Amino acid sequence: MNTPYTLPVRDIMHRPGEMREHVIDVELAEPFGAGQVAVPIGGVLHVEVRLEGLHEGILVSGHADAEAVGECSRCLIDITEPVEVDFTELFAYDASEDSDLQVHDDHVDCEPVIRDAVVLALPFRPVCRPDCPGLDPVTGERLADVGERVTPEVIDPRWSALAALRIDTTDPDGARPDADKEER
């Protein structure tokens, strides 16, 4: 199955030192990534690939860049973020090699290598800016929009019965029990 990521290597196979370069732009048919940020369907992935013939196989290296979209993990606004990755992988000629990737029918399929590199480069918890204050836990407002304000003290309802409890710190003689400690 030929995809834009499938590149011919017939002319460099078993020719150590031979090299070819390819530039491909791929419109994604499925997203790269999941969760809060991903390169979406229809997003364009720009890939520069270098194929080098070696004794053991074809060394595929290159650079990929795209635009990821998602939402800030703190304040939930929509964000876009550039993603740039470098990748290098050996595609073995022989299945007996210790490589997971193989040269098939005089072609290499770079999609798994590129997909893995892009997905691993995506942030786990993306933010709109490094100092994003997030959302107000009471009102749900975006704190960056409302500015500085005093947050009212919220008493946990499980402890509200203790709010009425007052402890008398004076002893029956009217003296404070820790008064003689202060004098020492």
Rank of each mutant, 00 (worst) to 15 (best):
4 P>G: 13
60 V>W: 01
90 L>K: 09
89 E>H: 12
43 G>T: 01
145 D>A: 10
45 L>T: 05
183 E>L: 11
109 D>F: 09
116 D>N: 02
78 D>T: 15
124 F>P: 12
17 G>C: 09
108 V>H: 02
168 D>T: 05
183 E>M: 13
35 G>K: 04
31 P>M: 01
21 E>A: 01
165 L>I: 14
17 G>Q: 12
129 R>T: 15
165 L>V: 15
26 V>K: 00
80 T>G: 02
136 D>R: 06
81 E>R: 11
78 D>C: 06
17 G>I: 09
175 A>Q: 15
18 E>V: 00
32 F>G: 05
144 A>W: 01
64 A>K: 05
172 P>L: 13
23 V>G: 05
162 L>D: 07
3 T>S: 15
159 W>M: 13
79 I>V: 07
76 L>D: 10
139 T>F: 05
50 R>P: 12
145 D>C: 04
158 R>S: 07
165 L>Y: 13
101 L>T: 02
50 R>V: 13
139 T>P: 09
58 I>P: 08
62 G>I: 04
34 A>E: 15
150 V>C: 10
108 V>A: 05
129 R>W: 01
8 P>Q: 11
140 G>I: 01
83 V>I: 10
155 I>D: 12
77 I>P: 00
12 I>C: 08
160 S>Y: 05
103 V>M: 03
182 E>A: 14
68 A>N: 10
73 S>A: 15
153 E>R: 15
41 I>Y: 02
57 G>D: 07
103 V>F: 02
66 A>S: 04
183 E>C: 05
134 G>C: 02
177 P>E: 13
114 I>H: 03
11 D>L: 09
96 S>N: 11
41 I>G: 07
148 E>P: 14
28 L>W: 02
